[in-house]
Amino acid sequence: MKVLKFLSVLVVFAIIGFSYWIYSSLNAPHAHSKTNQYIQIPQGSSTGQILVKLAAEGILSSPLPLKVYLKITGSGNEMQAGEYLFDSPITPLEVLGELNNGRLRTVKLTIPEGFTRFDIAKRIAKQFPQNPPEGENAVLNLMEDISLIKDIAPEAKNLEGYMYPNTYDFQRTVTTRAILEKMVGEFKKIWKPEYADRALQLKMTPHKIITIASLIETESRLDEERAIVASVIYNRLSKGMPLGIDQTAVYIAKMENRWDGIIHKSDLESNSPYNTRKIVGLPPGPISSISESSIKAALYPATTNYIYYVLNVEKNDKSHRFYSTAAEFERGKAAYQAWLKKERR
């Protein structure tokens, strides 16, 4: 009888001791070396598999305390798959809290205004290298699927100009197709029905308006002068003058995979239909991603007699001086070239 009482007391103390160890372990901060490394919990992982993985990664000192806790509380099913960053030190209960929140790792994709489809493809391929398709050319091939913009621009040959510049958050496993759909979706939020109506008033198609907007985007960084730049484009079109926009030469070089950061004389002499130094009228399509500011400027150009402009070297704020005659322009151009020569010394 005494032996049974003694054994009962031992069992009670053992239970109390074990319970205290579990409680202490669950609340004890544990230091690890993986603070800057994402730990992936695959879909379909069992509770036991998750705890063993976290112990193997060093996030938990032992899987047992949490295993017992989850068994008692029955809350193991709340843990979610995903990619996690765990602070160090961290307690097992804090680890469980992270797993229950199911935080997914995202990658920021920033597309600046004025980026071409070639720039966008390069950035997507670099930031999402593990997703099919692989490489810039494969991304560019996907951009040739114009089904996303058939309702706006059935004559478009690719998605250039219709991928809205913005900063996006994507899961690391996102497909390239989903990225393009999101960017075009953002463009469609900006392109309002009244914009299409205004294009008709100007005797333009939406695609031509987007093309003009892309020219404005590459020529002017200042919202307040974009409508004036637009007026120059429209004035030149009405006079049958080549637009003479050198950024189209840059676009040609990127299209032919030979852009080295400098516009060469051969670029300006190219026979490409995008060469606005030689062709009269608009290029076949947009040459960059565009902001709503440039779209509005293309739709509502200022009323001016200007047909030339040159960078304003006096202000040095990326603004331009605008001219109505060739003589005025030549004087402004000479001042700009003199300034440029001085700057390059």
Score class of each variant (00 low, 15 high):
I152F: 12
P92H: 11
T176V: 11
N166E: 14
V95L: 05
R117Q: 14
L142E: 15
T116Y: 11
A138T: 06
E144H: 14
L109S: 12
D169I: 00
S88C: 06
E144D: 14
A121R: 05
L99H: 00
R123N: 14
E155T: 09
L140W: 09
L99V: 01
E94I: 09
T91H: 07
P132F: 06
L148T: 01
E181R: 13
P129N: 02
P92V: 10
I124Q: 04
E155K: 15
V184M: 03
V184L: 04
M163S: 11
A153L: 03
I111Y: 09
M163G: 10
L96W: 10
L96T: 09
G102E: 02
G102H: 07
P129F: 02
V174T: 11
A153T: 02
V139G: 05
T91V: 06
A156H: 04
K150R: 15
P112C: 05
V107H: 01
G135T: 05
I90E: 03
L159I: 10
V174S: 05
N101W: 09
I152C: 10
I146E: 00
V174F: 02
G114N: 10
T116M: 06
P132C: 01
M183N: 03
G185A: 02
K108P: 08
N100T: 14
D151G: 12
K122F: 07
G114P: 06
R117P: 09
T106F: 06
G185H: 04
D119W: 01
P165K: 02
K157Q: 13
E98V: 07
V95K: 02
Q127G: 04
P154N: 06
K157T: 07
F128C: 01
M143A: 11
F187N: 06
R123V: 13
Q171T: 13
S88I: 10
L109N: 11
Q171G: 12
I90Y: 02
P92K: 11
P133V: 01
L109I: 02
N137Q: 15
G135E: 07
S88T: 15
D119N: 13
K189E: 15
N141C: 04
I152Q: 11
L180S: 03
R177S: 14
L99M: 00
I111M: 13
N137S: 15
K182S: 12
F118V: 04
F187R: 03
Y164N: 04
N141I: 03
G114F: 08
P154D: 02
L104C: 08
T175E: 09
Q127N: 13
S88H: 07
A178C: 00
I179W: 06
T175P: 05
I90W: 00
T167F: 00
V107K: 11
A153Y: 07
V139C: 05
S88Q: 08
A121W: 05
E144L: 09
I124Y: 01
I152L: 13
N101L: 15
G161S: 11
V107N: 05
D169R: 13
I120L: 15
E186Y: 10
L159P: 08
R117F: 07
D169M: 11
Q127R: 11
T106Q: 12
P129L: 01
A178G: 01
R123M: 13
K189W: 04
L159N: 09
P112D: 08
Q130R: 12
K126Y: 14
E134P: 08
T116L: 06
L148K: 05
K122I: 09
N137H: 13
